[in-house]
Simulated assay, not measured.
Amino acid sequence: MSTLKANKLTLSYGGANIFEDLNLTIPEGKISVFIGSNGCGKSTLLRSMARLLKPQSGSVILNGADIARLSTKEVAKQLAILPQGPTAPEGLTVLQLVKQGRYPYQSWLQQWSKEDERCVQQALHATGMTELAERTVDSLSGGQRQRAWIAMTLAQDTDTILLDEPTTYLDLTHQIEVLDLLFELNQSERRTIVMVLHDINLACRYAHNIVAIRNQAVYAQGQPEHIINAELIEKVFHLKSHIIPDPIYGTPLCIPHGKGHRAGEAPLEAVAL
């Protein structure tokens, strides 16, 4: 049984429909990645599935219930979302930021508890941020800052985590660091993770399930090795490419066609060895 579904979802932005009657099922306990060209609606769809964007029609089903009928705190106890490029107030420490993840569990009757403290410390440990807990968020490197925000989402202790382009603005080392962290969380805790990623090769490496979006619809969905091919890349990204197995991981590796080889040199396949 899936924890998250879109049922005949119609979304609009600026008066124009982005999706119409969209049906989508997110596999439970897996990593799903939305891919598609710029402006295709990946982030809009992700935000709607977190109840940050009200649909024109249709519904998002979270653990069997219409998400629109749940209170904000009820949603936050079941689903966490990390938007693109989050910012923290100046001077806020990592520990203070991560504690914000326990907000859904606080009330006049329920103040800070041992369970809250356990979840915060566990989130810091899982993201490797324990030693940096007293550092201010604005003093961290890009990769450290992203890990701090992920720690905050983990402190919510939800089974489902949504992340909008979590590797944006990070160098390659920090991209791999963040994606490795999310992969390990999925493997060790079976959390359902849904991400928007721009890098098709990283999406193929880390995703169990890819959702390719084109023309206001899901063009294809499934395991990377089952759906990623040159035809899909051309249809979805308007790019000719060659798909080969990744020499290390065996996942699909997209090699774009272009004029990238140095002037006067033949492409690699034309070189006689």
Rank of each mutant, 00 (worst) to 15 (best):
A133L: 09
K99H: 08
T160E: 08
Q121K: 07
R262I: 15
P166I: 13
D138N: 07
E184P: 06
G101M: 01
L197N: 02
S2I: 04
H257N: 11
I176D: 03
P27L: 14
P55R: 03
C254G: 00
A217R: 04
I200V: 04
L95E: 13
L232G: 00
E177D: 15
I61L: 02
E165H: 12
S12W: 07
R145W: 11
P104H: 02
I193K: 02
R147W: 06
V60P: 00
E117F: 07
V178G: 03
A270C: 05
A266I: 09
T25W: 04
P267M: 07
H198I: 04
A212K: 01
D159E: 15
Q121F: 13
T251I: 05
L197V: 03
I233Y: 05
Q111G: 10
R135S: 05
A272I: 15
A88L: 12
L140N: 05
P245D: 10
T87D: 11
S32K: 03
L273H: 10
A148E: 02
G14L: 11
R51A: 11
I213A: 02
Q110Y: 12
C40N: 11
I228A: 00
L140T: 10
S37L: 10
T10V: 09
A220R: 12
G222N: 00
Y206M: 07
R191N: 03
S241C: 13
R190F: 09
D164A: 14
V211I: 15
V236C: 12
R145A: 13
S113Y: 06
C254Y: 03
A68N: 14
K235E: 15
K114M: 09
K99S: 07
E225I: 06
S241V: 13
L162N: 02
E131Y: 10
D180H: 11
N63H: 08
V137M: 07
I35R: 00
Q96P: 04
N38A: 13
A16T: 09
A65H: 02
I200R: 00
K8D: 13
D66Y: 10
I243W: 06
S107L: 08
N63C: 11
L11W: 00
S32Q: 13
Q175T: 06
G29Q: 10
Y103A: 15
V94E: 05
L162E: 03
I244H: 00
I244E: 10
E184W: 10
Q111L: 12
I213C: 06
K77Y: 04
E231F: 01
L268K: 01
K114A: 13
G58E: 12
L253D: 06
H208C: 04
I18V: 11
A270G: 01
G14I: 05
I233S: 04
T173G: 12
L9I: 09
E184R: 14
V194I: 12
Q96I: 04
V194H: 08
G58M: 13
E189T: 08
K99G: 06
P27V: 05
G264K: 06
I210Y: 09
L97G: 03
T87H: 09
E165W: 12
S139E: 09
A217L: 12
S188C: 10
T127A: 14
E20Y: 10
L62I: 12
V236Q: 01
V194F: 02
G128R: 08
A123F: 11
S37F: 14
L45H: 05
I18D: 00
L45I: 11
K42C: 08
R102P: 05
K5N: 06
